[in-house]
Structure formats: C-alpha cells, structure tokens
Design a protein around this nucleic acid. Structure first.
Lengths: 250, 250
DNA sequence: CGGCGAGTTGATGTATGTCAAACAGCGTGG
DNA sequence: CCACGCTGTTTGACATACATCAACTCGCCG
C-alpha cells in the first residue's frame, strides 16, 4: 500500500510496552484526562499498547472490534466508502483522540494509520464497565465527542460550500494551528511557520472532497503566489499565517 | 422570513404548559429516556415548554444561551455560515433530539425552527449539575451525541462524494425511513409511501450543499422518471422505495 | 388588482472532474 | 553503478455537473 522504510513483517505485530500513565505524552488530552487515583489505576490495568505502520488498517467498517483506545503517537484517518469505490475521509485523528465508539461494537467507518501510529488500547468490555462506574471518564468522553461533532460540522460547511482553494487553506490552517499549539516555545506571531504534512496529496483530496489533481494544482498555485512554500511535497512553510487565513474563507 | 398562517406576534412568546413526563410523546427517545424516579422528577422540576413559529431563530451562533432542551414537536435546522453569506445546514433535528451542547455555553451554529416547534427546555446550569449527578442522563446524552456524530459523518460522505441526484434520493430515503418508523401500523413493504417535506426547496439545497435550482430540477426529473410523485411541492409519495434507494448511491 | 415568496424552467458560465502523459524519488537487483 | 519498477506528484487537454443569471408561473394575501 505504501512503501516505507519500516519492517514490513506483515503481522501488525503487537509490541507491548507498559509506559506509566504519569509519563504518558497524551495524559492531559486523552479520555483519561479527568481521571486520577483509582480510576487511572483501573484504566492502566486494562491498557495495552500496539503499533501500526503507516497504511495499515486499524479497523474496517462493519467489523466488530473488541478494542477501543487512544492515539498516543501518529495520525489515524477515518474513511467512509460508497459501494462503487468513491471514498470520503470523515475524520482525522491525532494524539489524544479516541478511536472506537463505546456502546456500539460495529465500526461505522474504516480506521487506517496515516502515519506510523501507536495506540493505547482497552478491551471494549472492561472499558465499558469502567465507563459506567467512572463519571469523570464518561464526562471526558462526552466532551471529546462533542468536540468531534463540532469538528465534523465545521467540515460539513467546508465540503458543502467552500471552493477547492478555501478547503486547502482551511486544512493547512488547521494543521498550522495544531503545530503552533504543539510547539511549546513562544514563537513570534508573524514568523514564517513550518510543519510536516501527515497526508499525501491523495489523502488530502479524500479529506477535502476533491481529486488529487485539483489538490496538486491549487497547492502549486498557492506556492506560486507566495502564500505557501515547500520543496518536499510532505511539508509546508507558511510565510504569513494571516495571508493563508484570509484564503480559508472564514 | 416565512409567511405562515400563524400569529406573528413578534415575541416568540413562551407558552408554558406542564405536561407530565409520563405522557410525553418523546419520553422514550429524548435525553430523559434512561431516567426514572428521582432523576426524572429532578428533570421535570426544571423543565419548561416553549414554542416557536416556523422560521423563528431559536439560537444564534456565538450567542450565549442559558437554555438547552429537547424537541417535543417540529423540526429544527442547524446552520453554519461563512462571512460572505454562503450557508450550509449542518444538522436537522427531529422530535426527541437535543438542542444545545452542555458544557459549552456559546452556540457553535444557528438553530432555527424549520416548522412550528415545541421545545422542552432546561436551564443550562441546573441541567449540567443534574448531568454530573445522574449517570443515566450522561450516558443517554453520550449515546445521542455519538449518533449525531455518525449522522454528521454520513453527511460528510454525501457532501464530499455524492451527485446531486444521489443527495436528493438519500435525503428523501432518510425522511421515508423516519416516516415509516413513525407510522405504527405494519404497512406492506411495497406500498406507495407518502410523507410531508419539512423543508422548502431552498432549505433542502442548504442541507444538501446544492442550489435551489439544482434541487428543483432533479426533483422534477425524478418525478418525470416515476421514481417520485408529488403535486404539492411540500409532500412526496414514493411508489417504490427500492427504486429510490437505488438512486441514493449506497 | 398588485405584490410577494416559492417553485420551475431556460440559457450560459465555470470550477472541478476525468483521462493521459511525463517526471521525481527511492528502493531493488542485476 | 546503473537500469528498473513502483509510488507519489505535477502538468496538460478536454468534458461535464452544477452554479449563475434571468424570466416566468402559481398561489396567497392584503
């Protein structure tokens, strides 16, 4: 599916490695964010880590998965397809985001690793039990789901009304915002801003409701106009965030 | 906004009428579905009914609303807009559905009555307190939010990849399904199926990411082809549900 | 009767999709 | 070391579904 410098052992081999929750990089953002003490211990007791190489399917639509979990590292894409093959990405998940719907075993969409991914997995059944007994956990999950819902609706506006150029600018702004938040240092606001693209052109097209050619054309046009800079297709630099924001349509 | 045979008193005047929860038409479907006894009493104590004429704004994006609530009767549309006026409906809510996000006071989108609407409202603060103390309530809200999220993602596929014809067929199928579920009697599966359209052509266009002309044209074409029948623009009859389903693309 | 809003229909434009070719990077294997 | 193939990207020529602009109808209500 994707040629990467990584062990293509064909197994999706689980690599167990128990990290203490206290040292977890997503401790503050994941489902467990509101938990501590006993609740955290209980979660910790049923967690398991697993890694997926880029391109590997994590979960297929219609499949019954025994697991749910949090993204520790990497990017996961959620995709829905029509029987004739047309496909639309319906979500893009980053570290801290939750994969799987508690309460509904059958997956409604495909989940695929867009980059190399590490998940912190919980078996569905004990997790759902814990959910019932742990209000903070349920509260956090509700909060996260509402955030996802808002994001999905923002995307409805994008897919329903924005031009190709606006869609691309919006997407890049979202990535820039994420990169900005991830960068701890207080960089000057106007400085040229650089970040990697976790998606190929094809995946961007799938996310933005466009074709690969349209994405490519608008990317090169944005570069020609100086709104964007990149040499590698997989990373961009934004000379002026405000200029890009102005292209996003809102 | 919409000329209707109804008191345009300009007040959105609250009309209080305490219905016992036991007699409530949405008792089984609303947030309160999993509640009983004390929890239901507590909810009942803070509820209030309010009616909105078709076309009335219930809540404007960015506005801070002191209320959340359930739809008792009628249809509510959720809309997001770009600064230049382009607008996209991001949700269509029916009786039982919940309006407003607990935990975030500021509305992320406009909510407007598409038909005459009756809401069962709760003041945000006491409701959120109750939410914290009542696991069934929180559980139900999580379930409903996950359902909304799935619906939104289904719509992403529609807006991102479906043709105008497929979008319209999908929408009509969804309405037909809802009407079917609402009709208690076991009608024969193949019978011509009739239901009202809660939306104008313009609103359908807003929901489907199209223009009013495109919706109109495809509706009349579907009628010409016998997939659909209607005399009034505000109601349709489907001679063969399977034929319509085949047009929906999935 | 006149005006208004919703819907329909027609003529025309255009952004994006489709098909096709060429290129660049990168690992593999002779 | 270079030729090869694979995948991702870019670029071009062309097709088309949908948007846009505009006119007209119909029902409703004052």
């Amino acid at each position: 599916m994707r040629a990467l410098a990584m062990p293509q052992d064909g197994s999706g081999a689980p690599r167990f490695s128990h990290v203490a929750c206290g040292d977890c990089p997503i401790r503050e953002r994941a489902v467990c964010a509101y938990c501590d003490g006993d609740a955290l211990d209980a979660l910790s007791a049923i967690k398991t880590y697993r890694e997926y190489p880029a391109g590997r399917d994590i979960l297929a639509a219609g499949e019954v998965s025994p697991m749910v979990g949090s993204i520790v590292r990497g990017v996961v894409k959620l995709t829905k397809s029509l029987p004739d093959g047309r496909a639309q990405m319906v979500g893009l998940l980053f570290p801290g985001d939750f994969v799987g719907h508690p309460g509904r075993a059958e997956a409604a969409y495909d989940a695929t690793a867009a980059t190399e991914v590490q998940l912190c997995l919980f078996q569905r059944q004990p997790f759902e039990t814990l959910l019932r007994e742990t209000p903070q956990l349920e509260k956090r999950l509700l909060d996260m789901t509402l955030t996802e819902l808002d994001a999905a609706r923002e995307w409805l506006l994008l897919l329903g009304r924005k031009t190709a150029r606006e869609r691309i600018a919006t997407f890049l702004m979202a990535l820039a915002g994420r990169a900005r938040r991830a960068a701890p240092a207080g960089l000057p606001d106007g400085a040229p801003f650089c970040f990697p693209l976790p998606l190929t052109r094809g995946e961007m097209a799938e996310y933005l409701g466009l074709t690969i050619e349209t994405v490519s054309r608008h990317m090169t046009r944005l570069r020609a106009e100086g709104v964007l800079a990149f040499s590698d297709a997989r990373s961009v630099s934004v000379p002026d965030l405000a200029a890009l924001a102005a292209e996003a349509g809102d």
